[in-house]
Amino acid sequence: MWLIDSSVGRKFVMGITGGFLVLFLLFHSIMNVVVVFSPEAYNAVCEFLGANWYAIIGTLVLAAGVVIHFLYAALLTVQNLRARGRDRYAVTTRQEGVSWASKNMFVLGIIIIGFLVLHLIQFWSKMQLVELTGHGDHALAADGAYWIQHYFGQPVYCIVYIVLLCALWFHLTHGVWSCLHSLGLDNKTWLPRIKAIANVVATIVVLLFMAVPVYYLIVNVFGI
């Protein structure tokens, strides 16, 4: 199976799963901003994405995307460490044009997985999981705005989310163009363009996500 046996196949899988997750992040970040303008509208979205068949399928596909992306990343990291050889260079330098993110994608990925676990415990387990299992407080299962106020009412969580979103930004600045490059979708003209697109997409996604904790931080701490 070339998707696991060949190096380009493995990168192809990383690109496809990564690209899919970026599309999800775009959707998720746009959805989140709604709460700033109208908590009621946001709750309507939460209701829509409860334990409905399409939301459950979506969740399963997403989970599969994350798991495959992570397993392949672990496999690639181990293989690449081995390919580096027994002895390491005594002197290493940073080459011009080589981004810090590109050399630390796995570490950034681990941070993002940690962020994901925290986020699932804080929100998903109180919302969709409650609807699925029937255990827990049903009245609040679709009240996303309540949970946002609950956690982001505490400034420490706002800060934690904002800091962790920075890791996501670094991961995406390399990941987005790397995805297109691994799928072979660029050339001399398009390489600088997809790098620019990556920076724009990463910045849009992260700014949209950050808008919520920043808004709640301002409202709750400074009382505006």
């Binding site: 190096s7 380009v8 990168k11 690449n80 390919a83 080589v98 590109s102 390399h174 691994s182």
Partner: peptide, 18 residues
């Protein structure tokens, strides 16, 4: 290339820089 123990490309671009 894979068989000979070379690693997987992660698009850092260090190769082209050097």
């Amino acid at each position: 290339m894979d068989e000979l123990g070379f690693g997987n490309c992660t698009n850092t671009g260090a190769c082209a820089a050097e």
